[in-house]
Every structure is written in C-alpha cells, then in structure tokens.
Nucleic acid binder design. Structure first.
Length: 536
RNA sequence: GCGGGUGUAGCUCAAUGGUAGAGCGUCAGCCUUCCAAGCUGAAUGUUGACGGUUCGAGUCCGUUCACCCGCUCCA
C-alpha cells in the first residue's frame, strides 16, 4: 500500500466513513464472506465465500475472462493497430520444483529474518552487515543496515564510544551478519539497540507452502504450491506457440489459486494466504514493449473504472525505479492500480500490477531447463530476394497485468457499501448491475388474487434468460418493504413487482435500488430492460 | 514476531462472582394493493477453546486460537 496522493483526499471522505467492522459484519450476515474453518476457531489468512460472495467473485472473474480473453480487450486494437490476441491456459498449482528455482522464488521466498528483542525491529538477515575493530575477537560487534549511511554511521559511533576513541577506516573490519557464529551474535549490538545479544538467530520464513508428492514422505519429493500463476504460463509458452496459431505479439491468460505463507495476514481478505489471481502474460518484441506496457496500463485502469470503481478511490500509480522487482529493473516500468480501502485510507492498496518483466522469466527457464525458448518471428528481419522477411529469433519481452481477484471482490464490496439512514435497511450494496450477484427479484405484491402465479411466470422467463449471469430471486413472504430492504442489502439492482394492475393491463412496477424510484412498464418489456441494464 | 484491543444467539450488544438477556434478523400463522407496518407464536448459546481459583466463573488468573489497530514484513 502507499499513501501517495493521499494529500488530495480531503474532498471525498466517503471511504473513511465506512467502517470495516460494519462491512465485515454485513459480509457475514448476508453470506458474502465467512471466516474459513470458523467452527474450529478459524485459521489465519483463509476465508470462504458464501452464496452471494461466490457469485460475486464468479461475476468478476467472468467479466475479466470475457473482456480480456474472449473479446481481446473488448475488441479494441492494440498499439500495432491490430486486434489484441489473447489465449487462455489452465496450468497446475503444483509443478516441478525446478520451476520455482528458475523463477527465483525458492531463493527469494526464503529470506532469513532477524528480530531484535530490544528495539522490536525486524530485519532481513542478508541486509545486515556488522563492523568491529580489526583483530578484536571479544569486544562488541555492531550491526547496521547495508547501504544505509545513517545506520552505518550510527554503528561507527557506537563502536567509537565503546572503544573510547575514534577509529580510522583502516582499523575497522566489516562482514555480513549471516557469517557470524552464535558466539559472535551474542556480543553483537543491533542496528537500533543499545545492548548486545538482543538479535535472534536468523530464521527462515517459508513464504512458499510445500507438500510432498508420492505415498512415501520423502523430502526429495518436496513440491511447492505456486505463489503466482505466472510461471505456469511461462513454462507453457513454447507449447502454446507450437500448437496454437498465435504469433507475437499475443498474450496468455489464466485465473487460478495461488498461495503465499504471508508473515502477517491482515485486513480481511486483502492479504490472504490462499488467493486467486487473474494474470496475463503478454509477449511482444523488446522494441514494442514500451508501447504495449502503456496500452495495458491504461486499459486495465479503464476496466476497473467501468466495473464501478470510478472516482478518486481508484488511482494508477507508477512505481519509482528503486522499488521495482528484480525482474523489472531494466524494463519500461511497473504501475499499480490501487484502491483506497477503508483500512488503507488515506493510503491505497494494490488491486493489480502491470509490470514489464522484460525477457527475464523466459531466459531463466531457458537457462534452467536447457530448452530453447526463443520465438521465430517470420515478420521481422531483412527482406529476402523473394520479398519475404528473413525472420528473427528472439526471446519475447513480457508485459504482465496481474490482478488479485479476491482484492477486486473486496474493493467492489467496499465501494458498493453505502450507508443510508433514510432507508429501511440502513445500508445498501450499490453493485454495478454487471457484477451484482443477484440480478433481479420478482415479487407478488400480495400473496393472493393470482399474483404469485403471474410473478412466477416472470421469474421463469428471467431465470431462463439471465440465470447464467446471476441469481433471480423470488419472494412472496412478508411485507413488500421488507422484501425491498432485503434486496438492498444483497445489492440486487432491480425488483419487479406484480400487483392488481398487472392482472388488468399487464404492467409491472420496477423499483430501482439506488434511487428507490418506482415506475411501471409492460411485463413483456422487463427482459429487454434488464438486458440493457446488465450490458448484454 | 512485538505491543495494544476484542471475543456472549445469525447480526449488534447487555448481564455487582449468584437462574444467560434484549433489539434486529430468521421461521410459522394472521393481516396487508408498494418500502423492514401491525398482531400472535417459535427456533437459536458447552458465553472462542483448554485449564486453574472458588460453595459457585460470562465475570478473577493462566494458556491457547481467531479477529481488529499500531509496528514489522510483503521475491
């Protein structure tokens, strides 16, 4: 998360006034999200989706799948002036562990950490350096943070004070903290500590979950649950190229679960240990990477806005060069689509990252697997005598728009949550009709005079036409006000009510969730009305 | 991992160490021609879990689990 652009939030404080506790209570009450394993006391970092949540999540996933994959960025042309080509993939959660060695995750996800008992600080062990007087085996050693001048200066100062004199650079010896033995660690003073021996032994944080394949528990058969779906795409790059009539530039898209053993799962579903990603790896020539990066960055922002995350709660943030991931250092850049959640406000939390990963991943897999990953581009190269291009072999660059499905759902829920003291439910969920889990409700005004039968006719028609997009509710119990109120809390955009006039002239009342306005229309027009509202 | 807070019905919350309750919601019935109306009734709890002190623990103590906030972390 970041608090960039946080300074401009004074005019709209709608999000800040939304209580995350209230939102979580509604999620439980209406069956959007439950704590996983709740009856056994829960389990940290895992959440289950209830009936409404599951449908909401599916609607968001479907919207992504349809717009990205099936329609190739909603049918628009890419920067090359041609339709954007995307093909789907569904790769395994568990792969050969060498995949994660090649990707850097085995090394990167095992950073040993050191805690300081005195200052309560935590450091990455490989980021800590130590200094002491040359040749001194027993005097105190001072730890400092690598390439942090202030931290180094503080350590030097502490050393001088301990030795009661100012040491010259030549008299000082430095080494990595990870090279220290237990004895030496006991006489080491932490970067933010005054006393020696307050640093713990470096402890590995296993950020990848592992398990074991085969019937026998043998460490040699250790495998990992994927921490990102992306690698499944990279390792299938050649398969797709060889078996599908796609040519660079093109993308491979995939949705699926990923797992990260987060040190501190927090903020409802925002940082879960099991989560679902929606990832595109878009392959293009290095020369075109910058244009494609800009294209994806802009379109992905637009996409989230079109789903209802409009306004100033959504921002696009380009990363500073020094905070880029290792694979993106040399690229055109990385940008995040970020949403201002109640728990991040006035800062923002990441929904999707668009990164230029260069050719890093394909190169890694080419090196580790010793399989050629280069693409033969027959549209490039010098023209041959017969007029055809000579062709060019290269490792494509990758633009990766990687979105968090669960984070998207959470943002949609937070955005939709709208307190309204003037209405019966006191709150309603203002979901965009396209992603609303319940698309419409049909009510007989009273349970007599043939109204339930008539209402059932309409219900049946709507289920047949729209049931694949979401639920069509039918309710004949209790007062009409209660039924409207229930639908408000579930976020159903339109309710259709059959009354005495319906029996006489065939018109029904349509009630709008957001405005609470009511108007009449012929029952025969309802399906057309709903189709238009759902964007079908 | 550290510090602080919280945990009682589906939800929001009460309950001096002394019989576990209310409102809302849910369900059933009556009533009802457009916004949780009205009436009647019903179901729902090992008070997060385990242990201890006590004649007696939702309440006090210990441990543990989960959630929230602040650090930390987030290839």
């Amino acid at each position: 998360m970041t608090d960039a652009a946080a300074a401009t939030d004074t005019q709209s404080d709608t999000v800040q006034t939304k209580s995350m506790d209230d939102i979580m209570a509604l999620c439980k009450r209406r069956g959007f999200i439950f704590q996983a394993s709740e009856i056994y006391g829960g389990i940290q970092g895992f959440w289950d989706y209830g009936p409404l949540g599951a449908q909401l999540k599916k609607n968001l996933r479907d919207a992504w799948w349809n717009d990205v994959v099936m329609m190739g960025c909603n049918g628009q042309n890419g920067p090359n002036g041609k339709p954007v080509e995307i093909v789907p993939l569904d790769s395994c959660i568990i792969q050969n562990p060498k995949v994660w060695e090649a990707s850097g995750h085995v090394a990167g996800f095992n950073d040993p950490m050191v805690d300081c008992r005195e200052s309560k600080s935590r450091y990455r062990a490989d980021h800590l350096m130590c200094l002491g007087e040359k040749g001194d085996k027993e005097g105190q050693i001072y730890a400092y943070v690598e390439s942090d001048d202030d931290s180094y200066a503080a350590a030097r100062k502490k050393l001088d004070k301990y030795k009661k004199r100012t040491l010259t650079d030549d008299e000082v010896d430095t080494c990595a903290l990870t090279d220290l033995g237990a004895d030496e660690l006991a006489i080491t003073v932490g970067p933010d500590a005054k006393e020696a021996g307050t640093l713990t032994e470096p402890r590995a944080f296993n950020l990848m979950f592992d398990t074991i394949t085969g019937a026998i528990r043998d460490e040699a058969n250790k495998v990992y649950l994927r921490p990102e779906t992306a690698q499944g795409i990279f390792i299938n790059f050649k398969n797709v190229v060889d078996t599908t009539r796609v040519g660079v530039p093109f993308g491979i898209a995939q949705t699926g679960k990923a797992f990260r053993n987060e040190v501190t799962p927090r903020n409802f579903t925002f940082r879960s240990r099991e989560f679902e990603q929606m990832e595109i790896e878009f392959f293009c020539h290095a020369d075109d990477a910058e244009a494609w990066y800009a294209f994806w960055r802009d379109w992905r922002m637009q996409w989230w806005q079109d789903l209802g995350l409009a306004g100033e709660n959504l921002i696009m943030r380009e990363h500073d060069r020094d905070e880029l991931a290792h694979y993106a250092k040399e690229g055109a850049g990385t940008a995040d689509v970020e949403y201002r959640f109640p728990f991040t406000a006035p800062g923002y939390g990441e929904l999707e990252g668009i990164a230029h990963r260069t050719e890093f991943d394909l190169k890694q897999h080419q090196t580790h697997s010793k399989k050629k990953m280069e693409y033969h581009d027959t549209t490039r190269g010098e023209p041959l005598p017969n007029g055809q291009p000579k062709g060019e072999w290269y490792l494509p660059h990758v633009i990766e728009p990687s979105a968090g499905l669960d984070r998207g759902v959470l943002a949609l829920i937070c955005e939709a949550y709208t307190p309204d003291p003037d209405r019966a439910s006191k709150v309603f969920m203002k979901f965009h009709p396209r992603i609303a889990p319940i698309k419409a409700a049909v009510f007989p005004l009273v349970k007599k005079d043939g109204m339930p039968e008539k209402a059932n006719e309409l219900r049946r028609e709507l289920v047949q036409k729209f049931g694949r997009y979401g639920a069509i509710e039918f309710d004949e119990k209790q007062s009409i006000g209660k039924r409207y109120a229930r639908m408000d809390e579930a976020g159903c955009p339109y309710c259709f009510t059959i009354d005495g006039d319906t029996m006489a002239d065939g018109t029904v009342t349509v009630r709008d969730r957001d405005t609470q306005d009511q108007s009449r229309m012929p029952m025969a027009d309802v399906a057309g009305f709903l189709a238009e509202k759902l964007g079908l």
